[in-house]
Design a protein around this nucleic acid. Structure first.
Lengths: 404, 404
DNA sequence: TTGAATTTATCCGTGTCGCGGATTAATTCT
DNA sequence: AGAATTAATCCGCGACACGGATAAATTCAA
């Protein structure tokens, strides 16, 4: 851990101010004082520096004429043009690229519907490089305007090393995607699991803005998991993102096995129908279930129960107030979600029965792009040791000891 | 999170110095400079303050006459008498109490072999109070000498609230043990899961001193789990300690269910033999297995496989370099451990095959007592945000002090 | 035995930071 | 137009970390 000096002090407080501005929209200096519990003097100094660095800008008056008597407050906000970042998402059947500004607003996005399932890593890297260059061009920007790129993909990703340990996208293991793309594009490229990006986006912009702990479970071709714990993305010991598909579960009704072979879209479809391109098979299955087809219903229920078992275990471990189930098609089907809910309710120990709220959320393509942006911007905000997210939630503290 | 001011700065650096002294035995100021990367001036100032507070003491010369030319370094160490703390462990069949000094050395300990399984919380509290008072007296101390008490017990414990949510010890749920004992004893009493105490002890004193990530799985009457992640004890969202027994697993061979009903000593014995007092039943079972009794072997193997399944999932999530299996009797039987190892090896995804080293460690009664002491002393060290444990991970081996 | 060399620990001056109180700035109300 | 009010900045203070100079305590060599 870093040793404390005035510089660190400043970095910490500067981060607090940035974070307050990001979270609470256009905000005045006095409000920042209250939010951060810093003195007016300090806030003034820090905001001056931030304005000087053009990371924030002051909103010209004329807007908020809030009934106040004295000198009007000048509102500060993130400067949208302080930096641009690119988010890339690799899914089995498409590559999506988006450029965002410093507020993580999407300026331009681009979707390449290509089946990259079993392409070689080299081909995929080519496609990503071209997509990024094209998207930047279409957004009327230069490569030099871009501060960083973040690539999200399913599987086990070691962010700190920039290596994809294992993914349904790549045939190979240990693909050094980050370094290779950094070399080709000439800007820093980080990679992360797609679930992590969604979790960060939910935390910064979505329905988990006021939560420091929640899970995101993504159900698509493969299963993704992200854990936000204590306001930070949880990573394994080596910075590994955990992979939900590799958990072993036992569903109440049937046998057990690798979760990814029981509850992902790919496994569900394999059982009932040949996989048709781009979600047609799933749509078919869901329609059949809606029509009351026993086999389809059973298939979905089995998947839901298997995933429910894993979710129950995760709740037992992390006790998150909220679990967000997300994904494209299957995740929003009641035939899948109801068994999932019931399984969770059955398996959870009584002491944890009510801690978690399980919600379903369909995502649009923009959410992960904003997550990718946020992931890159986090560094620019200068977070000294990571903490991001909402205001601290303080319980009654543990018993303190008097001074000796 | 706290806002940064000079006071916090000092607290951080002060903690670093304390931590360096604790970890690297008697140590000179120059060495502390290297360890903490603080300037000599700062170290001097902080150590002076610590000496003034009598938290550390300078070792008189005469010892280390290390062949050096100049002014000899004066060694600093924790002052053993800076504070005394009491550790209590509640197990189903005994209460153990120990008093330690500031170095977590045990001064006196006391064991009450009482079956407290289904006693009322009030009775247990009485027993603990008496035991603590008695032990302090036997150690020739006064209550006022004692800085704090930490109680470790199996089950789900919410340390920050001082509440035992659920435990095999108590019939009731949500026992506010911490507050009640604090009131009765007049000193701060914290509570935690016994597994957490063992984990902290391993981290401070045991075989995980150089690790920032590891798991402790305790196999006794019930199952305990502690997770040390990023140098800190992992707790669920509300400060809940996770409970291993509540995980649902599926063992490869047989069916599945709640892990606590499949792999704990109590469950194993229930299947094969009536529980005899204080481990006799387990000894019998193990002897039978050694003699080749098929049923006993199968019972142990089933338990090992069930636990192995859970451990595999935990490794998938946390990717810890080390997993420590601990406990009294069963945990050290090869008939239990071998199936466990094999199950883990089978279930672990290939990408994680070699990340974790699974070791077995029998614990003596002292280890958890030192853990309880450490848990209480941590606060006194003034850790501003928790970080405890070994030296920062360094590529090059720790610098030697001979030269310079 | 005594002075040079050497290593350790402290002292002093400087710069940065956050903070509280006074001061200036920009409004609205009367 | 002046008083009241609220926002932001300025000024002086104390705490801290740091680098370089200084004092302290020892060994080595003559």
């Amino acid at each position: 851990m870093k040793t404390a000096d005035p510089e660190l002090m400043r970095a910490i407080n500067r981060f607090h101010v940035m974070d307050a501005i990001r979270r609470h929209g256009p905000v005045s200096r006095v409000q920042i004082c209250q939010l951060t519990e810093l003195s007016a003097t300090t806030v003034s100094a820090i905001t001056a520096a931030l304005l000087d660095d053009r990371l924030i800008s002051s909103l010209q008056v004329g807007a908020l004429r809030d009934a106040g008597r004295g000198r009007p407050r000048v509102m500060l906000q993130l400067n949208p043009d302080a930096a641009y970042v690119v988010g890339v998402r690799l899914a089995p059947d498409q590559i999506t690229v988006a450029v965002t500004n410093f507020c993580a607003d999407i300026l331009h996005s681009l979707s390449l519907p290509i089946r990259i399932d079993r392409q070689t890593a080299a081909v995929i890297t080519d496609l990503v490089e071209d997509g990024v260059r094209r998207c930047i061009e279409d957004a009327d920007l230069e490569m030099s305007d871009v501060l960083g790129v973040c690539v999200g993909l399913p599987g086990v990703v070691e962010r700190s090393a920039g290596v994809c340990r294992q993914s349904p996208i790549f045939g190979d293991h240990d693909v050094p995607l980050g370094a290779e793309l950094t070399r080709r594009l000439g800007v820093p490229v980080s990679i992360d699991s797609d679930a992590n990006l969604v979790a960060l986006a939910e935390h910064w912009f979505g329905q988990a803005r006021d939560l420091n702990d929640f899970l995101v479970v993504s159900v698509e071709r493969s299963l993704g998991l992200a854990i936000l714990h204590n306001g930070e993305l949880f990573r394994g010991a080596n910075g590994l993102s955990p992979d939900l598909g590799d958990l072993m579960v036992r569903a109440p009704g049937n046998g057990g096995g690798r979760l990814g072979d029981m509850a992902s879209e790919i496994s569900v479809l394999g059982e009932s129908d040949a996989a048709l391109p781009s979600g047609r098979g799933m749509a078919l299955l869901l329609r059949r279930a809606d029509d009351g087809d026993k086999a389809s219903l059973a298939t979905l229920a089995a998947a839901g129960e298997a995933l429910g078992c894993a979710v129950a275990n995760l709740i037992t471990l992390f006790a998150p107030p909220k679990v967000i189930i997300t994904g494209r098609a299957m995740a929003s089907s009641e035939h899948f979600i109801r068994p999932l809910r019931e399984t969770v309710a059955t398996l959870l120990p009584p002491s944890l029965a009510d801690v978690s709220d399980l919600v379903v959320r369909e995502w649009d393509d923009s959410i992960w792009a904003r997550g990718a942006a946020a992931m890159t911007l986090r560094d620019l905000y200068g977070a000294p040791w990571g903490t991001t997210g909402p205001a601290p939630i303080r319980e009654a503290p543990a018993p303190q000891f008097g001074e000796l």
